Simulated scan of single mutants.
Amino acid sequence: MNDYSEKIRKILEKERGGNVSEMEVEECENFLKLLSEITMNNLETEMEWELKLKQFPEGFQLDGDGRNCGICNQPMGKGKGWYDRYGLKCIVCQKALTDHVIPASLLKNKDSFYTETELNIFFNMKRRVLDCWIKKGIVSVRVIKDIDSRIHMRLFLLRDNKNFFPPKKLLRGGMHIEEKEGRQFYVFGPWYDYCDPLEVIGKYGIAVSALRTTCQLIS
Rank of each mutant, 00 (worst) to 15 (best):
P75K: 09
E179T: 13
F113S: 04
I38Q: 12
G202D: 03
L130F: 03
M76A: 04
D193L: 14
K108A: 06
E29W: 04
K169W: 10
D131E: 13
L106P: 00
M76K: 01
S140H: 11
F185E: 03
I91F: 00
L62R: 08
S21Q: 05
M1G: 10
R150F: 07
K10W: 05
F156W: 08
F156S: 04
S140D: 01
I121D: 10
I8K: 02
F56A: 02
G79Y: 02
S21M: 05
T117I: 08
A104W: 05
L158M: 07
R9Q: 13
S140G: 08
C132D: 15
L97D: 01
E29H: 03
G64E: 00
S105P: 00
K78T: 13
E199V: 12
C69H: 06
M1I: 02
L35N: 14
L51A: 10
E37S: 14
V129S: 14
W133S: 11
E58H: 05
I201G: 07
D148G: 04
H176F: 08
I206V: 11
T117H: 05
L211R: 14
K54D: 05
K145T: 15
K10N: 09
R16Q: 15
V92H: 11
Q55I: 07
L51F: 09
Y83M: 05
I144D: 02
T45G: 02
M153D: 09
K203R: 15
E48M: 12
L170H: 11
Q184P: 01
L106W: 07
L157R: 15
T213M: 07
N124Y: 03
D63V: 01
E37K: 15
I102L: 02
G205Y: 09
H176L: 13
V129F: 04
M40A: 15
D131T: 08
S105H: 03
I91S: 04
I218M: 12
F60R: 09
E50I: 14
N42G: 14
P166V: 06
G205W: 06
L130P: 02
L130D: 04
K54G: 00
D3N: 08
F60C: 11
Q74P: 02
S105L: 05
I11D: 06
L88Y: 04
I151R: 08
K95Y: 02
K169E: 12
S149Y: 01
C90F: 02
K14E: 10
T214I: 10
K7W: 01
K136S: 09
F156L: 06
G87M: 05
K78A: 08
N68D: 11
L106V: 11
K52N: 15
V25T: 08
A96C: 12
I134N: 06
I206S: 00
S5D: 10
D196T: 09
P167C: 05
V200L: 00
L217N: 10
T115V: 07
M40E: 14
T39C: 07
N19T: 11
S5Q: 12
N73Y: 11
G137A: 05
R127E: 03
L217R: 13
G77N: 13
Q94N: 14
D131Q: 12
Y4A: 09
F122Y: 15
